[in-house]
Design a protein around this nucleic acid. Structure first.
Length: 478
RNA sequence: CGGGGCGUAGCGCAGUUGGAAGCGCACCGCGUUUGGGACGCGGGGGUCGGCGGUUCAAGUCCGCCCGCCCCGACCA
């Protein structure tokens, strides 16, 4: 075996790094902490974008583009926001060879510049709500980086909305959390737990942060998407005011929500195996790959003709690739496409031509185990069904894995043990000090208080023993 | 910013007491191969991370600098 990966169980971190590079999703850029998203990785991101954008439009949002550069002074306007973000700002101090009068921050997130613009645009209750999303890139000067999961520059979408009432804004925040949950489950086959962040884990400047939390293949948690209720914090900082129906001047209520290329990391770490990537069928850049098999020149011509006919038929419903590279053996190609995670592989050779069949191999069951011979007749429907089946089986497999690694420890001793290789679903008094102590002692942080969780009534904090306010998840996280 | 590791061909590495820069993979050409990672023959490719020093001679010894990776504190 050339091209072999480290095994997932032996060295998860190295497995991840090499997989990203070998599957050609991304590569290291010349600047520390920056990456190049390669065409295969970008194709995955484009499919993620499409699936999300469709949902944003369906819930009444429109897209716009705000500038990359933001005056430094904007960050001073919201107290918590500046504390949260100033340590990781990249700042432009010179332009056109001259020192700038006011330095410009490269956006780490756009609440400030969008707040400024909203103040200009919003005058009346009739202007509300404003429901804008933008697709773009942001820069955060992170100390420790990892491909897709944490890079200095990353791509994302950030939605920013303004509303007349707190209720409406809160409703929007929850609606977008639902959109992310639906996307994760039904497009990426990634099970997620929607919930609320604790005070210490919430977004800098938010009143309340919601999150979808996913468990990776090493049992660590990943915040896969967030939705924030910003209250009137940014409205007051940027003077987003409108006249209500009674001619009273009111501050607006705002929200923001985002999902980034980090989600690609989630897809890799949730579904991938020792043979490589496993792309969720609905987002896969290539859903079906066709590998032709032949010996002689005559066979080659016949097989390629049939393979191309099948490619054209499949292309009407799926993203298809015919691998007609002539210098590689079929065995090499099988491994190559398994590394790249293509959900379904069609093999066609002389024996199939004679029998009117093809070999179908499914990526979620690698090797010969997932291979069957099916008639060419009705292949489009067969594959449509198989892709759905793969989606479901990936989801179920990930869900079963997650459930098997969530524990309800009976005491703190057991808690310390379970968070070494899993999540703890347990009770907490709500005191940030307990949360901080747990983090210091175990490296496990609070992930979220689940929306559909158990009551904490009558239970005690796992750490201090005082009456519990919440039942929530603790885990080591990326 | 602390701790650890590493910079030699695109990638992975070897290079002994200082004495002619190598190996595997990848790449290019030709031929034979092709249902689970083919083989033969022939090729191309190097500021040995950088600067300075010691020496007849430095990939190798000395000094300074730079960069990358992993682990921690911070974070989507």
């Amino acid at each position: 075996m050339s091209n072999s990966l480290p095994s997932r169980s032996e060295n998860f971190a190295e497995w991840y790094n090499q997989l990203v590079l070998k599957a050609e999703l991304a590569d290291y850029a010349p600047v520390r902490g920056c990456m190049v998203v390669r065409p295969y990785g970008w194709a995955l991101w484009e499919n993620i974008k499409e699936a999300l954008d469709k949902r944003f439009k369906a819930t009444g949002h429109v897209n716009a583009a705000f500038p990359l550069l933001i005056p430094m002074s904007f960050f001073e306007k919201e107290k918590e926001h500046v504390e949260g973000f100033s340590p990781e700002l990249a700042v432009v101090t010179h332009g056109g060879g001259e020192k700038l009068a006011e330095p410009l921050a490269v956006r780490p997130t756009s609440e400030t510049i969008i707040g400024y613009m909203y103040a200009k645009w919003i005058k009346s209750w009739r202007d509300l709500p404003v429901l804008i999303n933008q697709w773009g890139n942001v820069v955060r000067w992170e100390l420790r980086t990892k491909l897709f999961l944490r890079t200095l520059e990353f791509y994302w979408q950030e939605g920013h909305t303004a509303h007349a009432t707190a209720e409406e804004a809160e409703e929007e925040t929850r609606r977008m959390l639902d959109v992310y949950t639906d996307f994760a489950i039904n497009e990426a086959a990634v099970p997620v737990i929607p919930g609320v962040k604790t005070e210490s884990e919430k977004f800098a400047g938010a009143v309340r942060s919601y999150t979808i939390e996913a468990m990776m293949g090493d049992t660590k948690a990943l915040q896969a998407g967030t939705s924030h209720f910003l209250g009137q914090n940014f409205a007051k900082a940027f003077n987003i005011q409108y006249l209500d129906k009674n001619n009273q001047l009111q501050y607006a209520w705002t929200t923001s929500w985002g999902l980034s290329t980090r989600f690609i990391g989630a897809i890799i770490m949730v579904h991938g195996d020792d043979k490589g990537l496993v792309m969720p069928p609905r987002l896969a850049p290539i859903q079906v790959v066709i590998v032709p098999i032949y010996k002689t020149e005559a066979e080659r011509a016949e097989v390629l003709e049939a393979a191309d006919r099948i490619r054209r038929e499949l292309a009407e419903r799926f993203r298809v690739k015919l691998d007609d590279r002539d210098n590689l053996t079929p065995g090499y190609k099988f491994n190559d496409w398994e590394l790249r995670g293509v959900p379904v592989r069609v093999e066609i050779g002389p024996r199939d031509l004679a029998k009117g069949t093809v070999a179908l191999a499914r990526r979620d069951k690698p090797g010969r185990e997932g291979k069957t011979f099916v008639p060419q007749e009705g292949l489009v429907d067969t594959i449509a069904q198989l892709l759905d089946e793969i989606h479901n089986s990936l989801y179920e497999r990930a869900l079963a894995f997650r459930n098997a690694h969530i524990h309800e420890p009976k005491d703190y001793e057991e808690f310390k043990e379970v968070v070494q290789n899993g999540w703890a679903y347990t009770y907490w008094c709500g005191d940030p000090e307990c949360e901080a102590n747990i983090k210091a002692e175990t490296k496990a942080t609070t992930r979220c208080i689940p929306l559909e969780g158990d009551s904490a009534e009558g239970h005690k904090c796992i750490y201090c023993g005082r009456p519990a306010k919440y039942k929530l998840y603790f885990a080591k996280a990326y």
